[in-house]
């Protein structure tokens, strides 16, 4: 991390910066990795409700398509199992490094993670428009054979995945369900696996 404060001459958010200087400016506790994904969505529900749903990590697999399970270990730590290509999964323990009720949650993966990652999700009260949710994720594509497979997924997919997951989160919060165009249970099953 550089010690010089990062100064841009405009108000554009770090996730849109063209130079590689965004991670340092993100205010993410322990920065892990160098690939950055930033996505924003506005959810037409009060910030308290949106934050509370997200803060209960056991809810996340409902709308995060690649997350198989999240086990909450204690107030700060949780164990994540995430789908990888070729029927594999990758796992890590995540630790909350900082949080403020109804404002943000920041985390980092613990040593030994299959894919080192860190990030933060910001919640901003948007008055009549609801809540602006911004997810910023940094991840470190790993080496090795598994690493190659995982990297393939993570290098190409995280931006798209984060965007789709946020849309599903929005759908769930606003409509109580996640939209699908399947018309049989079997089709739906195929789509979500």
């Amino acid at each position: 991390m550089s010690d010089d404060p990062i100064v841009h001459g405009d108000d554009a958010p770090p996730s849109s910066w063209k130079k590689g200087d965004a991670p340092d400016a993100m205010g993410i506790g322990d920065t892990k990795g160098d690939s950055i994904v930033g996505r924003t969505v506005t959810i037409n529900r009060p910030v308290g409700e949106v934050f509370a749903y997200f803060r209960d990590f056991t809810n996340l697999p409902t709308f995060m398509e690649n997350v198989v399970s999240i086990e909450v270990l204690d107030e700060a730590r949780s164990h994540w199992v995430v789908k990888a290509p070729a029927g594999r999964t990758v796992e890590w323990d995540a630790r909350i490094t900082d949080e403020a009720q109804d404002r943000f949650i920041a985390w980092t993966s613990e040593p030994g993670a299959d894919v080192a990652n860190s990030g933060r999700v910001d919640f901003q009260d948007a008055g009549a428009r609801g809540t602006v949710v911004t997810a910023t994720i940094l991840y470190d594509p790993p080496g090795g054979i598994v690493g190659k497979i995982v990297a393939k997924m993570f290098q190409r997919e995280p931006a798209i995945q984060a965007r789709r997951d946020l849309r599903r989160f929005k759908q769930l919060m606003e409509t109580g369900e996640i939209a699908t165009s399947a018309y049989t249970a079997r089709q739906l099953e195929e789509e979500t696996n």
């Binding site: 506005t42 609801g130 789709r164 599903r168 759908q171 606003e174 409509t175 996640i178 939209a179």
Partner: peptide, 22 residues
């Protein structure tokens, strides 16, 4: 969906949630 911002403004064809995420 009837519950997003656009549906609230009766701009139904601009609904945020009627189209699956992917």
């Amino acid at each position: 969906c009837g519950s997003c911002y656009h549906c609230g403004k009766h701009q139904y064809s601009a609904c945020d949630n009627g189209n699956p995420a992917d």
